[in-house]
Design a protein around this nucleic acid. Structure first.
Lengths: 341, 341
DNA sequence: TAACATTATGTTAGCGCTAACATCATAACA
DNA sequence: TGTTATGATGTTAGCGCTAACATAATGTTA
């Protein structure tokens, strides 16, 4: 008679035997306790403790065609913006039965699609995915996934399921408006990578400047190279070489803003007097720099936290009041745009 | 007669039927092709393609007691140091059959132990774990895991299985030596969080200063608060308030170094003339700052890349030439320690 | 040439859990 | 009071794949 070697640890059959019930009753006690009487629940939990039983996640996933995984797909692992949101997601999920499966789409829609296929093939309990620019195939896969799906970092009016984020267009607009309100006149834009969210910030910025009569397409400098502090210094140097009358910039993110500040310092340009600088996201370093840097603050931790809350609510059968949660942004004015004029 | 609803997608049985072989032959063709004849392998691969078959990872893991997961545990999701290494790990694994399962231990040895138990319970193909300060239980679990294990970010002489990193002690020592060689005399240390690696850097730094006759315990300032740029500015302010004769600092990491620079600028202290500053890791921003910041460079991407290479080699049955890979570090001298004296 | 070894493929049973259906006791309703 | 519904628990079979053993053809060695 053939014998298969198991993993060696206690199984649900061991718990059932010890508690004097059937295996499905143990399963119910752990997964759906309201279906089991108080008396039996106590006996079962006691047996679980005594045997140090841990459910076998692969067996459960196979039998139910559903796993305890929450798939999370972000476009970058090294961008601080996503790091805060990931930390919130991990913080919210770590004390429960779920596990995070993290995927890096590298800002490539097709890579994202491939990751979504792979993750959905494993029957995740939920999916969290950055942005609103998925391929048609990805949208369809997620719409048919039969699990909660939350798009994070942005809001739009066509959610796959749920959304938590803010308007990048409005954020860019607020940045442009702020610089004009501070009296800057020849206002530029520095942007790196130029993913869809970057484009939306740029469009909002342009909108504000058109309204204020200050839009000059010649002051827009962007590159598809990925963002860095060094790049910020380089871009402002290039823009100033081209247009020495530049007197303010809206940088697509904080790294570029910090780099722009360093670039100005190297060139002997006074910030904020001769150059106003505003960034986006309001990373921790913006307050510490000298001069401190103005930024559009976004609550990245709250985005991750609320996304998980929405998932848990939907899994619990609660109908959400709203499927789209706009957490907004705030203008955090600091020294870099506070010139006296 | 009861009927179970499967996941609906093609199974190995469908491929076997189409190729005219048994299911185990299909399985062998995909997992161990050398055991199947060329002729049958072609028929099977053809059937896989036609049916768009994707192996069911949960079923495979249950049947073999081994999954396609590589468990990776780091102490922080928001620390840029780990982000580079994680990016390398994802880059190396994404094109193959493996998937990353990422865990955040939050610098807590007991949380790390719990994560290791959870991950090992899922039969991972390999484990990557940061550092060398695991609990005894964690060490034992990993030693008995029967899969490749790589400790990253450090090297020591007692690996669980394999190690890729560098000596933090020697790195700290190099920083201290450098500052003395540049003529600084009252040299301090700024440290945050003070995890084991931070401690080793501090010990190396002290060693160097004792050798050079410059060690002053009063110039050591550390906190268990987690690191940030703002904290660097704060710590150097506090240290200077206490010891106005301070003329150089070795900062435990680059964020603190950048913050120390900002703090000096705010206080009107000339860097490098009146204050030398050196950081650790050499993040991208160090070259861009004004003045540019000296740092101990570490190759975090290479650490992740080599760790995965070692795992793949061990899974392929190759005996490694060496189980401990010291990638070393380099002193990257820049303006912040290049005073003319 | 016979005995033993190797290679390629197939069969059986089971890895651990749960969907789907079954059963029985108790509660609710007409 | 009889009928129907509900709640709690059990049984059967199977989710999809592979370990372990079996078989047959071919190769090697004494």
């Amino acid at each position: 008679m053939r014998k298969r070697k198991g993993a060696g640890r206690p199984t649900i059959a061991d718990v059932a035997e010890k508690a004097g019930v059937s295996t499905i009753t143990v399963s119910r006690a752990l997964r759906d306790p309201s279906k089991v009487s108080d008396h039996l629940r106590r006996k079962i939990n006691n047996a679980v403790r005594k045997l140090n039983y841990v459910p076998h996640s692969h067996a459960s996933a196979l039998a139910s065609t559903r796993s305890n995984i929450v798939g999370v797909i972000v476009p970058s692992l090294t961008n601080n913006v996503f790091a805060d949101t990931l930390r919130a997601i991990y913080d919210e999920l770590d004390q429960g039965p779920f596990q995070v499966q993290l995927g890096n789409s590298r800002y490539v829609a097709k890579d994202e699609e491939r990751l979504v296929r792979t993750f959905l093939g494993q029957g995740p309990s939920a999916m969290i995915i950055a942005g609103t620019d998925q391929t048609d195939a990805t949208r369809e896969l997620l719409q048919n996934a039969e699990c909660p799906v939350v798009q994070i970092m942005e809001v739009g009016d066509d959610p796959i399921d749920m959304m938590v984020g803010f308007s990048h267009f409005e954020g860019g607009k607020a940045a442009g408006t702020h610089l004009m309100q501070k009296g800057y006149k020849r206002i530029g834009f520095l942007g790196a990578r130029m993913d869809p969210r970057s484009h939306r910030r740029l469009e909002g910025f342009k909108d504000a400047l058109r309204i204020g009569g200050r839009y000059d397409p010649d002051l827009i400098m962007t590159t598809t190279v990925s963002s860095s502090v060094s790049l910020g210094a380089e871009l402002i140097g290039q823009l100033r070489a081209r247009r020495s009358d530049l007197d303010a910039v809206f940088c697509n993110n904080d790294d570029l803003a910090l780099g722009a500040l360093f670039g100005c310092q190297k060139a002997g340009i006074s910030v904020p007097d001769d150059m106003g600088i505003i960034g986006f996201n309001d990373l921790e370093m913006m307050a510490a720099s000298h001069p401190s840097l103005t930024s559009i603050r976004t609550d990245r931790y709250a985005i991750g936290k609320r996304a998980v809350e929405m998932i848990k609510a939907e899994l619990d059968g609660e109908v959400p009041e709203q499927k789209i949660l706009d957490l907004g942004f705030e203008l955090q004015q600091r020294e870099s745009t506070s010139r006296q004029k």
